[in-house]
Design a protein around this nucleic acid. Structure first.
Length: 311
DNA sequence: AGTAGCACCTGATTGC
DNA sequence: TGCAATCAGGTGCTAC
């Protein structure tokens, strides 16, 4: 499922095709893809038509394309996209574009330097969406590193924290936020308002790597442990990114739902009952906070207040 | 304020 | 065999 590394792969794959392209027409094939836009698909179509895409920017799992219009003003609006669980983008030349796939929720017709392109948004499970909205200055100095889009983020993304690979992540503040409250540490890792980009799969992987039990209360997590968790998160995401970036061809923007990184490299997620790659103990699987969770009961000790008190 | 729980949706898989 | 229940996932909303 698309988490930070997968969304970054999509962003990086999309950017060279769409930057500088003008949106000629938008064919919405399922109205719910525009459910976050107040006026629905009609407003999405009307506000996108004629816009030129200035780049592709990402924070955590949120992706957006800043838009400029004929007046040459800096981008003030964006086409925002969230892949949900199963979203994909595919790019075709207009001449080679196939009939829309049954899971195609929207087809955008683009034009750049005389070339006509088709950008399909596919989404089997329909948790993803496209949205057109204004860009807002953010008070935390976020710089997406995308030139003209610096320091502006879509209105719907303002509540999302900097992501785990953002060089400007305020690490001490992030660790403090992770160590607050009564929730289990895994639920805290999944809280996109604190540190974004971590989903169910990488949460399990990071916890396994850092040897932390998913149900350890956040407030019983030491600075050292929280710090190790953040570093494990960054390491596993960098590893995934290195593999996710390997497999795309010109017309397919890889969302990497199953292929690529998945099925290799994973030590915990989806491996309930299989031996731990570190100690050989059978990995546990249970639902925690409504999410399938996987961990090693030997390497990742459950928190015990009594043991903590003795020490 | 912080947290838990559910709705949203579809297709694959499992159970009867 | 056929149908129904279950599961998976991220986010945003509601209710405590």
């Amino acid at each position: 499922m698309p988490e930070l590394p997968e969304v970054e792969t999509v962003r990086a794959g999309l950017a060279p095709f769409v930057t500088g392209a003008t949106i000629v027409a938008v064919d919405v094939r399922r109205d719910s893809v525009a459910r976050h836009t107040p006026g629905g698909s009609a407003e999405l179509q009307a506000r996108l038509r004629g816009a030129t895409i200035a780049g592709a920017v990402r924070r955590g799992k949120f992706l957006w394309l800043p838009l400029t219009f004929a007046d040459d003003a800096p981008p003030a609006e964006s086409l925002s996209a969230h892949l949900g669980m199963s979203g994909q983008f595919r790019v075709h030349t207009a001449a080679d574009a196939p009939a829309p796939h049954p899971h195609c929720r929207a087809r955008l017709h683009l034009s750049r330097a005389g070339d006509d392109l088709v950008l399909d948004f596919l989404d089997q499970r329909t948790f993803g969406y496209l949205h057109v909205e204004e860009l807002r200055p953010t008070d935390d100095g976020f710089a997406g590193g995308q030139g003209s889009a610096d320091a502006l983020i879509p209105a719907s993304v303002t509540h999302i924290g900097r992501d785990a690979l953002d060089p400007d992540l305020d690490v001490p503040a992030a660790l403090r936020a992770w160590r607050r409250g009564t929730r289990g540490i895994k639920q805290v890792l999944l809280d996109q308002t604190l540190v974004s980009g971590i989903g169910n799969i990488y949460a399990d992987e990071a916890l396994w790597r850092a040897r932390v039990h998913p149900e350890r209360p956040a407030q019983a997590t030491s600075v050292a442990t929280a710090s190790a968790l953040l570093e494990a998160t960054q390491a596993v995401m960098r590893d995934a990114l290195a593999q996710g970036g390997t497999s795309f061809d010109a017309l397919y923007v890889n969302v990497n739902g199953q292929s690529g990184y998945f099925g290799r490299g994973l030590e915990a997620y989806g491996r309930g009952g299989e031996p731990c790659g570190r100690c050989g103990n059978a990995l546990s699987r249970a639902t925690i906070g409504g999410r399938a969770s996987h961990w090693c009961g030997r390497c990742q000790r459950r928190y015990s207040p009594r043991r903590a008190a003795v020490r």
